[in-house]
Amino acid sequence: MAASSALVRTPETTHRVYFQDCDMLGHLNNARFLDYFLNAREEQVARHYALNMGQLAREQNASWVITKHHLSYLRPARQGEIVRIRTQLIHFDNSNLVIEMQMLNEDSQKLKAVLWSEMTFVKVDSGVRTDHSDELMEMLEQLDVEGIDYDPDGFDDRVRSLRKELKRARSGEEK
């Protein structure tokens, strides 16, 4: 796993919206949003935290499984467009975590979609919930983004808050 100094709490990657991922209107298909988000997170985790999920599963006989998604589609992502995907850990405990993922336009001014993925750490051989190792807990503590009050029922409130934040940022630049 990554060294304890200078972990990026909110990594970002860009991705082109491909033709084959779009519907007849040239919009990213709703089901493909999940693929884009999860692929971006996997790439970011490998790059910024030196964490290989397959290797982790083999070494600890445990891995995270997704138990729930909350996904809000706000603006279309169009064929050929470059989107920016930002991810961050917003909650964790001994065996669970919640990753927030945001899809924005390339210059990060307009929010296209927000996803919360709730995950549970389970034993690979039995599927039974298990606790994170001490080493994982230390890393999760470093990655947990401060200033986001996670409420399992607060997804819609978080989406409204993000939209207002970006709107304020845009109007501040226009002045």
Rank of each mutant, 00 (worst) to 15 (best):
N96G: 01
A113S: 14
E106C: 06
Y73G: 02
E118G: 00
E59K: 07
V65K: 02
D151R: 09
F121L: 11
F121Y: 15
T87A: 15
S63D: 07
I85D: 02
A31T: 12
D156R: 14
R47I: 10
Y49P: 01
M24I: 07
S4P: 09
S126T: 15
Q44Y: 02
Y73E: 07
S95Y: 13
T120D: 01
D125T: 13
V114M: 12
H48M: 03
A57F: 06
E81L: 04
Q44V: 02
L38Q: 12
F19G: 01
L162I: 08
R16Q: 13
H15K: 11
R86G: 02
L56R: 10
E42K: 04
S133E: 14
Q44T: 05
A169E: 15
W64Q: 01
S126C: 09
F37W: 01
L89R: 00
E118M: 04
H132E: 05
N105Y: 10
E106W: 07
Y73H: 11
P76E: 14
D93V: 09
M103W: 01
Q142A: 13
D107V: 07
Y150N: 00
M137N: 08
S108G: 04
H91P: 01
T10K: 15
R47A: 14
I66N: 10
R32S: 02
S4G: 13
E141S: 11
